[in-house]
Design a protein around this nucleic acid. Structure first.
Length: 883
RNA sequence: GGGAGCUUAGCUCAGUUGGUUUAGAGCGUCUGCCUUACAAGCAGAGGGUCGGGGGUUCGACUCCCUCAGCUCCCACCA
């Protein structure tokens, strides 16, 4: 069989993915094995794959594939999130492009469009995950708006309502004027924003509504809201303004009279010390207003435009109004000055619109009890956050949590199951029928037509917090007493969750709450928090910067395995990842390395007559031990979620140990056959390595495993047991390492002296050097090794050290006396200095007395080794000089 | 404003209860090689006073204090 010198991923990936699907290798059903469960962080149903998904899902897949090969019943549940606000925005935008306004549609009509969009574009991301090799149990794919999952959400709402945790009330909420909905505190991103600080003159009223000549100056960033002012507030301690007490001032432009009030909230040192109080449009002002019984004048509508209550600039967008009112104030003589000012401004995470604090009727879920339990779950270690540093952040959040605003003024999502009677009272029931029944208990004359369901839907996270439960048993949420079905009983709690720290509170904390509430158990035990993928300059990936590559392009160019390896190489938990295409190239190069190792092995012909050369026997023995040693390290890394360390350990084992040393040591001469023992051992090692690499690089390992022997249809490497570590002889391994150092020493000499590898040399080693590995030195360095007590006439030749062993290569006529002398003198100088520092330590009584014996013994060994090296170098020097 | 974290080779990072030589890896760099598995490769080499300063200790990259720089999270100062 002719094999190309390069691995071609595109020829193999789709083929094997189809094979896996055909045989349902990813599918899991409860059985007697130990389960290993991961639920996918459900991507937005309309989302497309980006680098963050690649990182996250590669990590998930590595964990799942490893667990599967560890003999566990691995189940990775995939699915998508309906992402109410994001999806609704996309649908609105799409309709707008077609000339259809959402406002012109009924709820039903809009939802029809939305579902059409979902059917058409939804789930694209799931098919993209297949390109990446994700081993999800696709038969279990769920969507947060599947009818039974939606039911679970409604039941949960009813449950918490009956428990007294859900209430309705007028609150100052974060209004998103682009999404036309309230958003939760967590969905508001504060960013320092450059704006203007307007200093406005508010004239004192003469009591008849006319301005006197006196005025006060008020500093504000939002002059467009002055029409909603209800008072001007000063600090009661502020002597500068005592003369104002009891007076009234006039709002510029509309000349409305408002009182001066006093409240200690006002900082005397900030701004002018006078605060305009606008209860409808600022959280603090609202609270001041409450304390002083001020009216709430809401002058901004759902779209962020001034309404008729503003009296002026009606219909203008708030920012346009700000711009215009500046001129109006100036013309009217009310503008004292304008300064540049930077202040934190809240933005909507979803739409990036500036949040408008606004009073409205919303639904809230009480958080204190839920948060207390969720905090305990993490504090007790029942849920481990990896890395651990997030525990502090988590605690801080949980201890300061506020009630969760769960209603959204949207149509896409689960509609709140509250039904209003004509008189405004309401009932909360799972469906309209039950609602009617309940309503009739209040008023027997109520008919179906009298009941009106709440227009709002629930926050997306109010469905995704049930995800680890509802994907298995949608009956359970909302019914803590319901007996879990077979799946839920088997798979819950899940094992690990891989997600980004940005949704630690949105999602992770709330899943823990829901788990505690409905399952009396946490939803997972380990939360692996990835970093954010950035470009190599450290910038966040974004569409506007254009610095975000399309993962599918990368997969097409380098192969899925290369992309996976590239992402993982630099990803320690919790650290941001600086993405660089060079890492993907490294992944591709590794694929080629594996591929070519296979080409070598596959090209060997067994010679039944051939005896195993000693060099091969030594290498076979060594690599067996080495593999066990590496596996021990790999398992240790995996157990601590040090995925990139595990990966690098395997990478080096394959590239350095296996290819550079093992294969070179056992490789027969060109055209010669290989003995059967070495051949079988090599194939076995190669197969073991394929298994070790498989969780990270599923495609190439499958491709090669399938052709390594005759495989039957339905066989697969992905269900084989991961290699197990065994006892290894560490002493033999270090003897082999000494041999490798000797080889490197000779290669070095060859390079310096320009001696071809083909030219055989003699290597003299002192008695005591481990003889077992000498055949490997002879083969790899092309030398014949002689052992001797002393090197005798060493006048022409080069010495070097391997550890404390002295080595000598006779090279008549090629030795530069000065060079060799200088080298040896440098060694002696270095060692003497080192020896001095060691002896200083050893002569310190405090050190010898208080340091552990082990450490002291080590220092003594250092001393002895250093002495040996100095002696050897001095002897060589003497010989060199012919003394 | 409050809190957390980071600062180790040109780059990205390890460094696991303070002690395996005078600190490691991958990538990049430099030198020599197209040696019949692999030039996307092979062989070799160079590169760091562990951010600055102080302290604790027989011993500090590791613990404490302090200064500087960076990052993230939380936050209603108009």
């Amino acid at each position: 069989m002719e094999l190309s010198a390069k691995y071609n991923p595109s020829a193999t990936e789709d083929k094997w993915y189809a094979y896996w699907l055909k045989h349902k290798f990813f599918h899991s059903e409860p059985d007697e094995r130990e389960p290993y469960t991961i639920v996918i962080p459900p991507p937005n149903v309309t989302g497309i794959l980006h680098m963050g998904h690649v990182l996250n899902n590669t990590l998930n897949d590595v964990l799942v594939r490893k667990a599967r090969m560890d003999g566990k019943n691995a189940c990775w549940v995939p699915g998508t999130d309906h992402a109410s606000i994001a999806t609704e925005n996309k649908v609105v935008a799409k309709l707008k492009a077609e000339g259809i306004e959402k406002d012109d549609l009924t709820r039903e009509e809009f939802l029809k469009y939305a579902w059409e969009w979902k059917e058409k574009h939804g789930g694209i991301i799931l098919s993209q995950l297949r390109k990446l090799g994700a081993s999800c149990d696709w038969d279990r794919t769920r969507f947060t708006m599947d009818s039974d999952l939606s039911e679970a959400v409604i039941n949960t709402f009813v449950y918490f309502y009956r428990k007294g945790y859900i209430y309705r009330g007028i609150r100052m909420v974060n209004w998103d004027p682009v999404g036309h909905t309230a958003v939760s505190d967590e969905e508001v991103v504060h960013k320092d924003t450059v704006s203007k600080f307007y200093h406005l003159r508010y004239f004192i009223s003469d009591g008849q509504g006319n301005p006197t000549g006196k005025y006060i100056i008020i500093a504000t960033t939002r002059p467009e809201t002055i029409m909603a002012d209800a008072a001007v507030c000063i600090n009661p301690e502020d002597e500068r303004y005592h003369w104002l007490k009891g007076k009234k001032v006039l709002i510029p432009l509309i000349n409305k009279e408002i009182p001066i009030i006093e409240d200690s909230y006002v900082e005397m040192g900030f701004g002018t010390g006078c605060l305009k109080v606008t209860p409808a449009h600022d959280v603090n002002d609202y609270e001041i207003g409450q304390r002083h019984g001020l009216p709430v004048i809401d002058i901004i509508d759902d779209h962020g435009r001034l309404n008729e209550k503003a009296q002026i600039l009606v219909g203008e967008d708030r920012f346009e109004a700000r711009r215009k009112i500046e001129g109006m104030l100036k013309d009217a003589g009310n503008l004292e000055k304008v300064e540049d000012y930077t202040s934190p401004v809240g933005y909507s995470e979803r739409t990036n619109a500036v949040i408008e604090p606004r009073l409205s009727m919303q639904w809230f879920l009480k958080m204190d009890a839920l948060a207390k339990d969720a905090l305990e779950s993490v504090e007790s270690g029942n849920v481990k956050l990896i890395p651990d540093k997030y525990r502090n952040t988590y605690r801080h959040w949980m201890e300061n949590v506020r009630d969760w605003c769960i209603s959204r003024q949207l149509w896409w999502g689960q509609r709140i199951p509250a039904y209003y009677l004509p008189d405004g009272r309401f009932v909360v029931e799972p469906d309209a029928e039950a609602a009617l029944e309940a309503a009739r208990k209040i008023d027997p004359s109520i008919t179906e037509a009298d009941l009106r369901q709440d227009e709002d839907v629930l926050d997306t996270w109010f469905s995704s917090w049930l995800w680890p439960i509802s994907v298995f048993d949608p009956q359970k949420p909302g019914h803590p007493d319901h007996k879990p079905n077979k799946d839920l009983a088997y798979y819950y709690p899940t094992n690990d969750l891989v997600t980004g720290p940005d949704i630690l509170f949105f999602w992770v904390a709330r899943m823990i709450m829901a788990g505690n509430e409905f399952m009396k158990d946490v939803p997972f035990h380990n939360v692996y928090l990835t970093g954010i993928v950035r470009d190599k300059l450290g910038r966040k990936m974004s569409k506007t910067l254009g610095n975000s590559p399309d993962p599918l392009d990368l997969i097409a160019k380098y192969g899925a395995d290369a992309v996976r390896l590239g992402m993982l190489l630099c990803s320690s938990a919790g650290n941001d990842i600086l993405y660089d295409e060079a890492q993907i190239e490294q992944g591709r190069n590794f694929c080629n390395k594996i591929w070519n190792a296979y080409r070598l092995i596959a090209g060997w012909n067994v010679d039944a007559q051939a005896q195993q050369p000693q060099s091969a026997a030594v290498a076979v023995k060594w690599f067996g031990y080495r593999l066990d040693q590496v596996l021990e390290q790999v398992e240790d890394h995996f157990s601590k979620f040090r995925i990139s360390d595990a990966l690098m350990t395997i990478y080096k084992c394959f590239w350095d140990d296996f290819c550079a040393w093992y294969l070179e040591a056992v490789k027969p001469a060109y055209g010669a056959g290989i003995d059967a023992a070495t051949y079988e051992a090599s194939r076995g090692y190669f197969e073991a390595l394929l298994k070790m690499i498989h969780p990270v690089m599923p495609f190439i390992t499958v491709e090669l495993w399938q052709v390594l022997s005759d495989r039957k249809d339905g066989e697969t490497i992905m269900l084989l047991r991961y290699p197990q570590t065994g006892k290894f002889d560490a002493g033999f391994i270090s003897s082999f390492e000494m041999a490798c150092e000797a080889v490197a020493g000779i290669r070095n000499i060859r390079q310096q002296k320009n001696i071809s590898q083909k030219e055989a040399l003699t290597l003299k080693v002192k008695t005591g050097f481990p003889v077992s590995t000498i055949p490997v030195i002879e083969k790899l360095a092309n030398v014949s090794v002689e052992t001797a007590d002393s090197f005798g006439e060493t006048a022409s030749g080069v010495t070097f050290m391997v550890g404390t062993s002295e080595m000598f290569v006779p090279l008549s006529g090629m030795v530069n006396l000065e060079e060799e002398t200088a080298k040896l003198e440098a060694v002696i100088a270095y060692q003497e200095k080192f020896l001095e520092s060691v002896r200083k330590k050893l002569s310190n009584a405090k050190f010898v007395n208080s340091a552990p014996e082990k450490v002291v013994a080590l220092e003594r060994k250092k001393e002895a080794d250093s002495l040996a090296k100095i002696d050897a170098a001095k002897a060589s020097l003497k010989a060199l000089k012919g003394e």
